[in-house]
Amino acid sequence: MSQLDWSLTEERLALAKTVLDMSAALDDQLQLALDESGMSWIGIEESEGGSGGDDADLAIAIRALAGQARNASLAETAFVSAWALRQCGHSEASRHIAPAFSTANDLQAVEREGRWWVSGTARQVPATSAAQLALLPIALGDSWHLALLPISSAEIEEEDNLAGEIRTTLRFNSAPAELMLELPAHLNWIDLHARLGLARAIQISGALLAVRDLTVSYARTREQFGKPIAEQQAVAHMLASVAEQALLAEAAVATAISTPGLWNNAIAKSVTSRAARSAAATAHQVHGAMGMSEEYPLGALTTRLWSWAEEGGRAEAWENWIGRRFMEQDQPQLWESIVNPPESRHQ
C-alpha cells in the first residue's frame, strides 16, 4: 500500500474540486453552501442524516479549504466534534458543534434533578461563530465524558489568532448540559486533543501545498538582475526547501489518515508544525517585501501556518509525548516502535 495515494481517487479529486469552486465563488456564504451541499456532514452515516464518506474524504475537503485560506469550520466541526461524538455512539447532522479540545480545562459537572450542570472555563475554542453548541471534555471519576452545551449558555470572550480566526473563551457557571456522553474507556482527553491536532495538521498540509505553489510561481515570474529570481541558486534552494517541508507534512498526514490512532496523530502534528514554521519563513524570504503586503495572498496562508502550528499541541509538546511514550516501555526498541507503534500493540 502506498500511503501517499490516499488522496488520489477520482471521487476525492472531484470532491476537492467542488470545494475549491465553492470557496472561490462564495464569500460569507461559504459555510451555508458547505452545509447545504452536505459537505459539512461528511463522515456521518447517511442513515443518520449525514453524507457518508470517511476521514480521507473529509481530509481532502479540509486540505482544499486550507489551501484557500478560508475560515469555514469543517476541520473543527466535522472532523473533530462529529468524530468525538461518534466514539460515544452519537451523531448530529444538522447542528454545528465547537470542540473545546484546545487546552486542558478546569471544567466540572454535577448531577442534580436528573440533569448535568457544568461549570468552569474552556479556552481557545474554535469554530464558535459557525457552531451553536460546544463539546466539552469533563473527567468524572475514572472516565472521560463529553458534555454538549449551547454556546449561548456561556459567558463569551472572543480573540483573534494571527490569521484573524476567532478563538473563544467560554465560561460556564452551572449551565445545564443538553447531553452528557461517556467516552469509551480507551479514550481520554489526550485523544480528543490529538484529534484536534490532526485536524490542524491536515490544514497545515493543505496550506503548505498552496504556499509551495505560490512561492514557486512567484520566483519564476519575479525578475531581478535580468532573470527570474528562481534562477539564483540561493532562491532555488529555498524553493526546494519549501517543497521538502510540504512533502514531509503531507506524508505525515497521510500516515495518520491511513493508519489512525493517537501515535500517528502525534507524529502528524509534530511534523507538520515544524514544517509550517520552516516553510512559512522560507516562503516569506523568497517573496521579499511583497509577502508582507496584506494585498498579496501569501500572508493569509503564513499567518494560518503560524497559528495552526501552535494550536492542537505544538511540535515540542507532541515530540515530548512520543518520546515519553517510547521510553516508558520495557526495554524500548527504536526500530520496533517505528514498525509497530507501542500504542497499536497495547490496544
Binding site: 509577502g291 508582507m292 503586503s293 496584506e294 494585498e295 501569501l298 500572508g299 503564513t302 499567518t303
Partner: peptide, 8 residues
Amino acid sequence: RPIPLISG
C-alpha cells in the same frame, strides 16, 4: 498610497 502589512 498605503500598503497594509499582513498585520493589517
